[in-house]
């Protein structure tokens, strides 16, 4: 018995090494599933406050771009507002309210971002007190950005679209053919559109938007444009490369969207037996 203990004592450094590596790999595995609970991330209070202090300094360098972007979005919204205002000499009756207020939008600021790893995340300066919830979709004026993964009181961490495990249900706007957008881990400007059958005709420059099927994003938010179409190695599907609409290297302000009927939609799909 004593000899066993002595032996274990003599290799104590190695045992500690194995234990620490096991902890680290366990963290890697549990954290990198897009679903699943997360205990530690950059949205906790200490990290968040440090990052937002840093952002207080660095955000001045991108103020110009941020202003342009906001002004452009404002103009777009004013167009919509103008189209929806009604002439004063007529009466407007709301016929059906069932499709209204389906989605709720919120705004937030990016305080931390990365784009060179395989699993990239973004931290936002709003949290549960501002109504941010896990699972909300994130986009900006240009296109899709990601999906909320973890929320604390004042901060939220988001899985970037530049995360090889995140799939965004999308469709080609002109033909309504749907597929899934997934990043291939190579270049922050391009992603792949998967599961588009071979018989579909796709042209370079076609617009790809969200499909609205997965109840995270409303239909029609820009994902990107088709950059190249190839036959690919998979027998049934085309190999489509998208040029992403959002510029991930200069994210400043983003919008968050929540589907008020997500639970209802999800509970409905439980009735369908999975083959």
């Amino acid at each position: 018995m004593q000899r066993i203990l002595l032996f274990l004592y003599s290799i104590r450094a190695f045992l500690l090494f194995v234990a620490l590596e096991a902890v680290a790999l366990w963290l890697v595995v549990t954290y990198n599933s897009p679903q699943g609970a997360v205990f530690f991330n950059s949205s906790n209070a200490l990290t968040g406050s440090l990052l937002s202090t840093k952002d207080g300094f660095t955000s001045y360098f991108t103020l110009g771009e941020a202003n342009d972007e906001l002004a452009r979005k404002n103009a777009e919204l004013m167009d919509i507002l103008a189209a929806q205002s009604f002439p004063k000499d007529s009466i407007y009756i709301q016929v059906d309210s069932i499709m209204q207020a389906n989605y709720q939008f919120k705004g937030a600021k990016v305080i931390n971002n990365s784009l060179h790893l395989r699993t990239n995340h973004i931290t936002l300066n709003k949290g549960s007190e501002d109504g941010i919830k896990v699972g909300m979709g994130v986009f900006n004026g240009e296109g899709i950005v990601g999906r909320v993964k973890g929320v604390t009181k004042h901060y939220a961490s988001v899985i970037s679209l530049l995360h090889t495990d995140l799939l965004i249900s999308s469709k080609i706007k002109s033909t309504e053919v749907f597929g899934s957008t997934q990043w291939d881990g190579k270049n922050a400007k391009f992603a792949k559109l998967r599961y588009v059958p071979r018989h579909v005709e796709v042209a370079k420059g076609d617009t790809v938007v969200t499909s609205g099927y997965n109840a995270v994003f409303p239909e029609g938010i820009l994902v990107g444009t088709v950059d190249s179409v190839g036959v690919g190695t998979e027998t049934n599907y085309l190999d489509i490369t998208l040029e992403l609409a959002a510029d991930f290297s200069s994210l400043t302000y983003v919008y968050l969207v929540e589907n008020n009927r997500k639970e209802e939609l999800d509970s409905l799909s439980q009735f369908i037996p999975i083959p």
Partner: peptide, 24 residues
């Protein structure tokens, strides 16, 4: 050394949002 490295890696991982990567 390993304990110091573990703490350093773990702290960095929280900021990088890459749990376990720097630690390991």
């Amino acid at each position: 050394t390993m304990i110091i490295a573990f703490l350093m890696g773990f702290g960095l991982d929280i900021f990088y949002d890459s749990m376990g990567l720097h630690t390991a």
